[in-house]
Design a protein around this nucleic acid. Structure first.
Length: 893
RNA sequence: GCGGACGUGGCGAAACUGGUAGACGCAAGGGACUUAAAAUCCCUCGCCUUCGGGUAUACGGGUUCGAUCCCCGUCGUCCGCACCA
């Protein structure tokens, strides 16, 4: 694997007595990294007057070691940072750690290490790994979210949000793991059981802290339009998540009856008021107040509601659950016909936390309502018919019609379109009153819920409030911040260690001075990552931000990270930016101007055995052989053959991981960086393969060999592009590539940049070799020196160490890292003559080389004179000649 | 179920969003150098071919002088949301 040995001295290079050694990244990389650090090349000054550029990659969770996904993510960000720096921007490129969270507590329970020690040790390891990648980061701004200094400012923000009414407390249903005695997030509940304990998860009502993200629902939706440098996919996902719908609320009068205990109306939300005459029942959620009231007197209803609550947890159960309901006995009056009475059911498919927790069922227009109606034998009246339907014969069988169309069976609405009927019903019901208030109103509804941030855990940012029996919930005064996590904790028992700490929670009330207790909930770790990008702009500041620094650096110009954060992290950050604007910490709405979601690093899997006894094998433990096009894998130890399986995301469980340390150790950081950037488009998955890495490494060595061999001949001449003569081809290749690659870098098309650079190296190989042998004249050497410099600058963002090494041996002053981007010469990138493909009837039959600025007539007559064209025309005139300037000529015969 | 994306050689992919399909890399094959190997360099490489050419971008249609690109339909893969009223 390690191929960094010096070349055999037996090899005889007749033209060369030096620089015949292979490039040794283990020597060169640390050397250049030290040089960059020593010169503080990547430390950013907030007072630098140049135009700013903020590039940020999603900061890592300090899990222990970096993985290839990190390498790819950070390599991309680093290319952008180095490229923009060369283009003259004042670049901010910081790094930190998303350091709070469950794994530290799990490690504490399992290995008896303190979460703090575990976390900071991991950070130290990973910082070292990132540094070995040679990333152009401003390490002076580094922080971890578990630093007291950071969460102190987060508590400050919390208090400001609280004061602004953006934080509140309410009862809410949570997933409660009775064994671990903790709340679980939805994604931590698998098939109704806790992901760690395996215990059946219960739904519990707890008082929880919430951020009022719904205050911004409409704005978060509307502003997506302005994020034109975000992937359309992500914007769409956010749009769906916010889930805006336009409809109306309608109040239904309850028919006076002994069964209806204390409820005289039911409010439903609907997006289809036009179908009101097709209504045949109301359905309410099991948690609806009316359902609870009825339950007290009706045992059957109580049991049904109970059943619904139990079934609610697992997704699989929801999918397959039969639509079921139970008649409450309550009847309501139709809002457009007081004589019409409808039954009220409790139904298992109605959700309490969407709309009003109550719906009216229109079986002909909604498949679910139809299934329900058929099951309980409720009327099915078609009220909407497709435009081309026949009113007399139109009927609904087993399939509901939920499209637009023409109203039927709807009295005065008949003949109207669905939109017109919507308007008419909305108008009538809004004008109608029930007990002195309008019976309904137009309402925009959102799927987005407020953000519950309470976590019953230790390793998170403490929520800075105090509960006093007299004064109620009292915010911790800012002067008393930070509320620090206690260090002396034990994880012997399940549950929140803060809760059972002997002294921590006991505190006197800041208002009345009486004994009170601290809030023991800590914040969701998504809070930590919702504003770190703002903190990086002035991490030394005693307030959460320095608004002037935040306003000048933000928004982040290019944010790069995984698609898995398309919704939550990005939505929360967008909310936080708005909330911080409302509280004066910065003044903008959208934190991320450009967003790029990179693909994963995937790898083949290897295994032996079948089913339960299947055992996964790490790639490091085997060797691959190829015979007759068949690839086979064998264990290194025993030689036993194992099965080559599918290509999947690198994961510990499938053991198809490659450790970046191993790759950097044997091939160097440049090879690793270059490989993850080449081949696949950056937003797609890249397949890690040994052959691919070898290829990347060959490229690194090739560049070094070509340049270092020619360097003695080039370092003495001044770089000068050749504008004529033999050497012009060299300068043209370099300048054309320069233009193309900078265009690719602008678009983050790293794979295309790589391809272009390969082409340039291929075309420079022969002249460089000739120059090394002393067979190049002065002009050629000057052109080669210039071309070599350009090549080095082009690769510098991707393989920065190699670039510095080449830069230096070519005799250039200073560092590539601080050298400005070269400018291509227009004269060298535009050709005087172009070759046009000539098609006959759309098939290519000839080529025509002609002056670039030749007019259409000149092109036409030149084309018609071509032999293949003459032949095809057989003396006749062409039917049509299409000349696309600079592109193609097509002759129709 | 709803919404979205994608489908190009043995493989990863290009093709300036209607203009020479397969750049570049990987793998493979042949050759040079070498006692031999590694490294390096050169050549070949979608399929068929009677060597003129024919044919090919999941499949079937359409629009166009011209379609990987636009339109309609079919199949397949992946992703997001999911009882949303």
């Amino acid at each position: 694997m390690v191929k960094v040995s010096a070349n055999s001295s037996l090899i005889f290079w007749n033209f060369l007595d030096m620089a015949n050694e292979r490039y040794n990244p283990r020597d060169a990389e640390p050397r250049w990294q030290a040089k960059w650090t020593e010169n503080k090349v990547f430390e950013t000054d907030n007072n630098d007057p140049r135009e700013k550029y903020y590039v940020l990659e999603m900061f890592p969770y300090p899990s222990g070691r970096i993985h290839m996904g990190h390498v790819r993510n950070y390599a991309m960000g680093d290319v952008v940072a180095r490229y923009k720096r060369a283009r003259g921007y004042n670049v901010l490129h910081p790094m930190g750690w998303d350091a709070f969270g469950m794994p530290a507590e799990n490690a504490a329970m399992k290995n008896k290490v303190h979460p703090k020690a575990w976390t900071y040790e991991n950070i130290a390891t990973m910082r070292g790994q990132l540094k070995s990648m040679g990333l152009s980061l401003d390490w002076s701004r580094e922080f971890a979210t578990c630093d007291v200094d950071y969460y102190h400012r987060q508590q400050h923000l919390f208090l400001d949000f609280l004061e602004k009414g953006l934080v509140y407390r309410k009862n809410s249903k949570v997933n409660w793991d009775p064994e671990d005695m903790t709340v679980l997030a939805n994604e931590q509940v698998i098939d109704g059981r806790g992901w760690r304990s395996g215990a059946l998860v219960e739904q519990r009502e707890l008082t929880q802290w919430f951020f009022k993200i719904t205050d911004f629902s409409q704005d978060l939706l509307d502003s997506l339009e302005t994020l034109d440098q975000w992937p359309e996919k992500v914007r769409l996902m956010q749009r769906n998540w916010i889930g805006r719908s336009e409809g109306m609320t309608i109040r239904w009068d309850v028919v006076a009856d002994a069964a209806a205990s204390g409820h005289d109306e039911v409010t439903v939300y609907t997006t289809r008021p036009d179908t009101l005459f097709g209504a045949s029942f109301l359905a309410i959620a099991a948690d609806h107040p009316l359902a609870k009231a009825v339950s007290e007197k009706n045992e059957a209803v109580r049991q049904f509601c109970e059943e619904c609550r139990r079934a609610g947890t697992s997704l699989a159960a929801l999918e397959t659950a039969e639509k079921k309901g139970i008649d409450t006995g309550v009847k309501v009056r139709h809002p457009l016909d007081p004589a019409w009475e409808l039954p009220v059911y409790v139904a298992n498919f109605v959700l309490m936390d969407y709309g009003t927790g109550a719906i009216f069922g229109c079986p002909s227009g909604d498949q679910r309502d139809l299934d329900f109606a058929r099951k309980y034998d409720l009327p099915v009246v078609p009220v909407v018919m497709p435009r081309d339907g026949d009113a007399a014969s139109f009927a609904v069988g087993d399939v509901a019609y939920d499209g637009d169309g023409v109203m039927i069976n709807s009295r005065y609405l008949d003949g109207l379109s669905t939109e017109e009927a919507f308007e008419e019903v909305a108008r009538r019901i809004s004008a109608q009153t029930l007990r002195g208030a309008p019976q309904g109103e137009r309402k925009v509804n959102f799927r987005l819920r407020d953000w519950g941030i309470s976590r019953q855990r230790y390793w998170g940012c403490p929520i800075p409030v105090i509960h006093c029996e007299v004064c109620g919930v009292v915010p911790v005064p800012k002067k008393d911040l930070p509320v620090k996590l206690p260090d002396d904790i034990d994880f012997d028992k399940p549950g929140n260690p803060l809760d059972r700490h002997p002294t921590w929670r006991h505190v006197s009330c800041p208002c009345c001075g009486k004994d009170a207790r601290r809030e023991t909930d800590t914040m969701d770790t998504f809070v930590d990552s919702s504003w770190y990008f703002a903190r990086f702009t002035a991490p030394w500041e005693k307030n959460p931000t320095d608004p002037s620094a935040a306003n000048s650096w933000l928004p982040v110009d290019q944010y790069i990270g995984g698609i898995e954060h398309a919704i939550l992290h990005l939505l929360y950050s967008r909310f936080f930016t708005r909330a911080m604007q409302a509280t004066g910490h910065l003044d903008l709405k959208e934190p991320f101007k450009g967003l790029f979601t990179q693909g994963m690093v995937v790898h083949e899997t290897y295994s032996r055995g079948e089913g339960l006894s299947r055992e996964w094998i790490a790639p490091a433990d085997l060797r691959i052989e190829e015979t007759d096009g068949q690839r086979r894998a064998f264990l290194l130890e025993s030689g036993e053959e194992v099965k080559i399986g599918s290509i999947e995301k690198m994961s510990k469980s499938k053991k198809n991981v490659v450790d970046p340390d191993d790759i950097i150790g044997s091939y160097g950081a440049d090879t690793a960086r270059f490989f993850v950037l080449s081949d696949s488009p950056p937003d797609r998955d890249v397949i890690w393969s040994e052959a691919g890495v070898e290829g990347a490494h060959r490229f690194v060595q090739r560049v070094w060999r070509l340049i270092s061999e020619a360097a003695p001949q080039l370092s003495g001449v001044a770089a000068k592009p050749a504008l004529d003569g033999e050497a012009m081809a060299i300068s043209q290749a370099a300048h054309k590539t320069l233009k193309a690659v900078q265009n690719d870098y602008d678009k983050l098309a790293f794979n295309k940049a790589v391809a272009r650079i390969y082409e340039l190296v291929n075309s420079l190989a022969a002249p460089l070799t000739a120059a090394a042998a002393g067979k190049a004249d002065e002009a050629t050497r000057a052109a080669l020196r210039e071309a070599a410099n350009i090549l080095v600058q082009l690769v510098a963002p991707m393989t920065p160490h190699l670039a510095e090494e080449c830069w230096s041996i070519l005799g250039n002053e200073g560092l590539v890292a601080t050298t400005g981007w070269p400018a291509y010469l227009e004269a060298l990138v535009s050709e005087n003559e172009i070759t046009l493909p000539v098609q006959i009837n759309g098939k290519k039959r000839a080529e025509l080389t002609i002056a670039r600025d030749a007019d259409q007539n000149a092109v036409t007559s030149a084309v018609l004179a071509l032999a293949p064209v003459q032949q095809a025309l057989e003396g006749k005139a062409p039917k049509k000649v299409i000349v696309v300037p600079q592109r193609i000529v097509n002759i129709v015969v």
